[in-house]
Design a protein around this nucleic acid. Structure first.
Lengths: 193, 193
DNA sequence: TTCATTTCTTGTCCTAGTTCAATGCATGCG
DNA sequence: CGCATGCATTGAACTAGGACAAGAAATGAA
């Protein structure tokens, strides 16, 4: 049960057995049914979740009432509204919702501090995690600005091959920043070639 | 000369005089004339720069040969291609260029490691810096997806009031992800109201 | 198995923003 | 000073993608 997350965190920093021990002892396991909202807009996000199993989406609702999906997180991914909530003490503007029955390991800000105090090496691991997060977000910005809808969809299929089977199409459209109807049209056009 | 950067870094973590001493001793001052490219696409970005004075832009060139500006950095901002280059060991896809005569404090990856070794508290400071960077990028993504060109421009003016005086309009258009012509049209329309 | 709800498709019309000129305006440089 | 290069503006024609509507297909609960 711990092997996934241990493998994940070990990618960023070399850990000895005692450190992993400390890490595992602080993890909080949580099982959540599908369609559960883990974080509502306006709340403080007080967790960072590692997905053991299942799929979640992180989204906000824009000025016109449209849902815009910022991130899908599946097995071995982390999800949180880190950037705003935890450190800036601002309420979150996003929702985090399970799309399938999920299992998580959760970190609260307090247990994270405890971890850093007991094993400072993790400060570095979480910094690198943050950096990867930034890299992914930058890549997404890059795609959003510079690619056509079709290119974005192809890139999505390549990057997340399993996801297109797991989540409803209109969620993918929302992630790509295009209308569900237009995605449908892109798909029929692609099928004809 | 050190007061700006000391003030900046102290926002994220409480530092005692010895720690600031160490920090300052590792800073490398650099003065660069305008229109200098600090980082070319394909190079490894081996610095994080704090802008003491001046203005730089970070941009990439998309598949159709268009420049897209990702970031402007002015006084008291940090600029780098952190996310990809330094830790992932991938060559950068972006350019960083001075738009005015500039003064910087530079950090190389090595001096950063030296800093972390001598004063571990900075690991945290740089993690938080990274988080803010992520927050800003996420905000930008949010705006890019959900706002009209006019809204983006207004938001830009509000957020970076001085920049619109300092940089050419077509750079702002490129930052907003719209054509220079269309920005001009937005401005004339706004002026008529 | 049936009915209801959600999801996907398809067509038509519409608009925000682009592309491509052409023209006037700065401004830096010999 | 004059000239060249880059910058901003304006207009006309075009297009990617959106909004709306209505039907088909899939999913799911009782």
């Amino acid at each position: 049960m711990y092997s996934q997350i241990n493998k994940n965190i070990s990618r960023y920093v070399a850990l000895d057995p005692e450190e992993l021990e400390i890490f595992n002892s602080l993890l909080e396991y949580k099982s959540v049914p599908k369609k559960t909202i883990l974080l509502h807009e306006g709340e403080m996000c007080n967790f960072e979740a590692f997905v053991i199993k299942g799929c979640v989406r992180k989204y906000y609702i824009d000025a016109n009432g449209f849902e815009v999906i910022l991130q899908f997180a599946i097995e071995n991914a982390w999800v949180s509204d880190i950037s705003f909530s935890i450190y800036e003490d601002k309420p979150s503007r996003v929702y985090i919702e399970t799309l399938e029955d999920c299992e998580f390991f959760m970190f609260s800000p307090d247990t994270k501090e405890e971890l850093f105090a007991k094993a400072p090496k993790f400060e570095r691991a979480f910094r690198i995690l943050m950096q990867r997060n930034l890299a992914v977000t930058q890549e997404r910005l890059f795609n959003t600005i510079s690619k056509t809808a079709t290119e974005k969809y192809l890139e999505f299929l390549e990057h997340y091959p399993t996801l297109s089977q797991r989540v409803a199409q209109h969620y993918i459209a929302s992630y790509l920043g295009i209308s569900a109807e237009f995605l449908s049209k892109i798909r029929t056009k692609m099928a004809k070639l």
